[in-house]
Amino acid sequence: MPEGKIVKALSGFYYVLHNDQLIQCRGRGVFRKNKITPLVGDEVVFQAENEQEGYILEIKDRKNELVRPPIANVDQAILVFSAVKPDFSTALLDRFLVLVEFNHIEPIICISKMDLANEEQMEMIMKYAEQYRTAGYKVMLTSSETETGIEQLIPLLENKISVFAGQSGVGKSSLLNVLRPDLDLKTNDISSHLGRGKHTTRHVELISIGNGLVADTPGFSSLDFININAEDLTACFPELLKASENCKFRGCLHIHEPKCGVKQGVESGVIPSYRYEHYVNFLQEIKDRKPRY
């Protein structure tokens, strides 16, 4: 049986890439019975009489999967956050980073719309960029308008499945249009009433850029920590994980425990206070979560 990769899902159809050919497939009823939904990024076994009438028979094991956006087997997430319009938010960025880290996806922070930042905003962004780099993250400073930073972004996409993610209005589609002008993806301005962008991407699709595949995804409508436990959270903050090696007690949650390496790191300035504050807030959110039955 032939094998391929789902590169697009739309209206109940799954488009499978096989030997540079796109086959339109439906999922077999067995998937619904077993409550398994084929996802963009899935490696699948299928059968097809022609390009229009295929059926997915088997979904290969996934190395990871996301719910919002629905995509599987992602190598890295390009987290696009604008310098302004909407304003850069470390709290929202850290929420994205936790979800990406928890799913074992490598995050790359891409700060867009740098051409719109004034001197004060530019200085603030540069400070944050350096702090996130010190924590261990790759940080790119870009502008779709001037194409600043785009050349540095392209090599990072090679031979990877990358997902472009971030709140709506930050310029994800604009960046992809610069990377591949023939896409001509629809973009919208920020809503002056809501202060955020309007959703322009309605479905998940893998787009070839160079030798890589990139997903332009609908904006995240929810960023909750459904599957993350309190004990998992430290590992989602690289600098906290490193500092936790100096904690006296195993399983330290870095709140009230004495001789805590993380709190010492915050006090000494090695760990930015806002990163620790976000950790504390997220931990409380996880503890307050209603148990699922």
Rank of each mutant, 00 (worst) to 15 (best):
I209P: 10
V270H: 13
Y276K: 14
N73R: 05
Y55P: 00
G269W: 11
P38E: 12
L175I: 08
E51I: 11
D232W: 06
P258H: 05
D288H: 08
L116N: 07
K138C: 14
F31W: 10
S244T: 06
V214I: 08
V45K: 14
I6M: 12
S11Y: 15
M126C: 13
I150V: 11
V163S: 12
V67W: 12
L156P: 00
I154R: 15
I190D: 03
L179F: 02
L241N: 12
E58K: 10
P181E: 14
R133C: 01
P2T: 09
Q21F: 09
P107Y: 07
L240F: 07
T217A: 03
Q47P: 00
H254P: 02
D224P: 02
D20I: 00
S11D: 12
E151Y: 02
A129W: 06
G4P: 09
K186R: 13
C260V: 08
L97C: 05
L223E: 07
L176W: 04
L253F: 04
I56M: 10
R133H: 08
F102L: 09
D87C: 05
M124Y: 07
N159S: 08
V204L: 08
G149S: 05
A235P: 00
L179Q: 02
L17M: 10
D182K: 09
I71S: 13
N34A: 15
K160Y: 05
R180K: 15
I23R: 01
S273L: 12
I6E: 12
D216K: 13
P218E: 00
G12H: 09
R292G: 09
N211H: 12
E257G: 00
G136I: 04
G212L: 01
R32G: 11
Q121G: 13
D224W: 00
M1F: 06
D94R: 01
V100Q: 00
V214S: 12
I111T: 11
V270P: 00
Q47H: 14
D182Y: 01
D224C: 08
T201K: 09
K85D: 10
F31V: 13
I111R: 01
P291R: 13
R289M: 06
L175W: 08
V40N: 02
Y274Q: 04
T146L: 04
L57S: 14
C252W: 03
V100G: 03
Y137L: 01
Q76F: 05
V30S: 13
A129K: 06
H104Q: 15
R275K: 13
N50K: 10
L79C: 14
L183H: 03
K5N: 06
I6N: 06
D224G: 00
Y55S: 11
A72S: 14
S174C: 03
G149Q: 07
P70Q: 04
Q24G: 02
V16Q: 05
V139L: 06
A91F: 15
E285C: 08
Q264C: 08
V74G: 07
I255K: 15
V280P: 01
R275I: 04
P272Q: 06
G12N: 14
K172T: 01
T148Q: 13
F88N: 10
R26C: 09
S11M: 15
T90K: 12
E277T: 14
T200V: 10
K113L: 13
L17A: 13
F164A: 09
K242Y: 02
V84N: 03
P291A: 07
L116G: 04
G197M: 09
E285S: 08
G149T: 10
I108E: 03
N177L: 04
L141K: 07
D232F: 02
G261E: 14
Y276A: 01
K138G: 05
A117L: 02
